[in-house]
């Protein structure tokens, strides 16, 4: 994993943003951009050009799935890997997320100490495909 992995994390919940920031900031191979809403993510994604996006589902205004849909409409991001980070992890919900184009789902609550490795695993599986 020599390259720097550019990750965008989108969540309306400030506490969780903090946790994610703390969990991932010390990893040398990650570069992190944090957004507080779907709109902010759409606004900054063009400039930041992340390798993949970690996206909350339940957000006021624009929820995760809508954000994903909008993102797909942007010319350069139709294939950008998006992973939902959500507490909605009942099997039918996970199936639904995958059906609308999510690469994977990380369940909340997650273990912050294991989060970096979880992200790396997902990334490896994306690269291998």
């Amino acid at each position: 994993m020599s390259e720097l992995l550019k990750i965008m994390y989108v969540d309306d919940e400030a506490d969780i943003r903090t946790i994610v920031e703390f969990a991932l900031e010390d990893e040398d191979d990650f570069e992190l951009k944090i957004c507080a809403s779907g709109q902010e993510a759409l606004d900054t994604v063009g400039d930041y050009c992340p390798d993949f996006i970690l996206l909350d589902v339940m957000m006021p205004g624009m929820d995760g799935p809508t954000t994903l849909q909008r993102l797909r409409e942007l010319p350069d991001f139709s294939c950008l890997p998006v992973v939902f980070v959500t507490a909605k992890v009942q099997p039918h919900e996970v199936a639904h997320f995958k059906a609308i184009g999510a690469t994977d789902v990380i369940a909340k609550p997650f273990d912050p100490m294991l989060l970096p490795e979880q992200v790396r695993d997902i990334w490896r599986s994306i690269v291998h495909e």
Binding site: I19, F22, A23, D26, P109, F110, D111, P112, M113
Partner: peptide
């Protein structure tokens, strides 16, 4: 049920995350 579990998990994510990070780091 889905909402409740989600609503419970959201704060739990923060609590568990915060505690995990403090203890881990």
């Amino acid at each position: 049920v889905s909402t409740v579990s989600h609503e419970l998990r959201t704060p739990l994510t923060s609590i568990r995350g915060a505690l995990g990070l403090v203890i881990g780091k």
